Amino acid sequence: MISDSDLKKIQPKLLNGESSPLHVQVGVPIPKVIRIRFFSPDEWEEFTEEWASSLKSDYSRVRRFGGSGDLGVDIAGFFSEQGFEGEWDNYQCKRYDHALRPGDVWVEIGKIIYYSYRGEYTAPRKHYFVCSQGIGTSLEKLLNKPAELKAKTIENWDKYCLNGITSTVTISLTGGLKSHLDAFDFSVFTSRSLVEIIEGHSKTVFHAVRFGGGLPARPNPTTPPPIPTENESRYIRQLLDAYGDHLGTRLHDTTALNSHDIIKRDYLRQRERFYHAESLKNFARDTVPEGTFDSLQDEIYHGVIDICENSHPTGFERMKATVAQASAVAGTSNPLVSSIKTQDRQGICHQLANDDRLIWMPKND
């Protein structure tokens, strides 16, 4: 008989000791390694492409190969412009429903042996196995024992490589190919863990968008230099024309502002705002996918263009009204929203003026 002592109260523990508002909103965070294991084929393909972009700092060139004629090459990192004729690394990225096993790699090893023997490429400096489910213990042990890995490759050649390397010809491990394999340095075969892949991915502009967690802290914007740069010439010319319209005189350069204190202070504020927007542009380049900042500029443009094209007493009033309107554009649909300041929205108006998308002195005024 079951006694009362066998029965325990239902007492769930608090999540990691305590719950938070974030848990209530989105649930328990799923570790990135676990999320990768549930990627669809398309998501895995996209993820590895994104991750491969992090390798560009390690190599002269990084290229992706695929299809039935990949010759055992998936992602190649070249150390020189010699490509496959020089030193290079190979990354073989597999998506399976299980951790990578020895039986999954014999044909891949066979391809590297065979095609390097054929002269399609020199043997890679390193050949890294990567798998969406990680590297299994049995394979990891083999990869750390090159001599045993070579012996097992020979042992499994007929089963996996004889008819598996290419569908057009049977490849027997005899003669020159056997000699090539015997001389081949099997220490080139190794692996990259999912933790290492995620670490590399975290250095790309795709990481925050794919995994969340927010953007890194944004550096302070650069202080505008005393003398404007060439990059500022167009929006500053537009400002001078707008100020001149307000003052009823032609302003040839910024030194003409020295006798107009209020206008000079406004000019200095507009330059600060431009540099805020430029710093956000640079921040976006390093943290979010290409086109994200352009999308923000477009959103600001559409939020202010009607105000800009309204009738205004002077070009100065037009600029002031447009910049004020930019402050009210939320931009909540943009991935940069958590890093945007009011000065950025205002400064984007001057970036748009730099490109003549916003005009303070329309010709029909």
Rank of each mutant, 00 (worst) to 15 (best):
T342A: 07
R95H: 10
F79H: 14
S132Q: 07
A353W: 02
D158V: 09
S19V: 12
T168A: 11
T122Q: 14
A328E: 13
V304D: 00
F184S: 03
L194S: 03
V26R: 13
D70W: 06
Y235K: 00
D356V: 05
A151S: 14
Q325R: 15
N163Q: 11
Q270T: 08
A52W: 00
A328K: 15
V24K: 15
F47T: 03
D344V: 04
F39Q: 02
Q11D: 12
D286Y: 09
K8G: 03
S53F: 00
P29S: 06
D355W: 07
S259V: 10
R64K: 15
Y267K: 06
Y121E: 06
V107Y: 02
D286T: 10
R218P: 02
W51T: 01
K152L: 14
E46L: 11
G77M: 01
E299D: 10
D286N: 14
S3L: 13
L142Y: 05
Y275T: 06
K111V: 03
N163T: 14
D104I: 05
H252E: 14
M361S: 10
P102K: 04
A99H: 05
G69C: 01
T204R: 02
G17E: 07
R210L: 08
K203S: 11
V107K: 15
G176M: 08
G213P: 00
A183V: 06
E199C: 00
S19D: 09
K9Y: 09
P313S: 10
V323H: 02
L352P: 02
P226N: 12
R357Y: 05
P41V: 02
G291S: 07
I109R: 01
Q82D: 15
S338N: 10
R64N: 08
Q92N: 10
E46V: 06
E87H: 08
S233C: 08
K94V: 06
T168F: 12
F129A: 01
S19Y: 09
V323I: 15
A256M: 13
N310C: 11
G315Q: 04
P226H: 09
D294L: 07
P102Q: 00
S68R: 15
T229K: 14
N144Y: 01
S116V: 03
F184I: 05
T223K: 13
T122P: 06
S193T: 15
H302Q: 11
D245P: 01
V195R: 11
K264N: 14
N220V: 08
K8H: 12
N220S: 14
F47C: 04
V107N: 07
Q11S: 14
G72D: 04
A99E: 11
E148S: 09
N163F: 09
S40N: 06
I198A: 03
A99V: 03
I359L: 07
N16K: 12
K141P: 03
H276Q: 09
K13F: 10
H23V: 11
R210N: 07
N16C: 09
L7F: 10
P41L: 04
S80M: 02
M319D: 01
L352S: 00
D261P: 08
Q25W: 08
T229N: 10
D294H: 07
P228V: 06
G72M: 00
K141G: 10
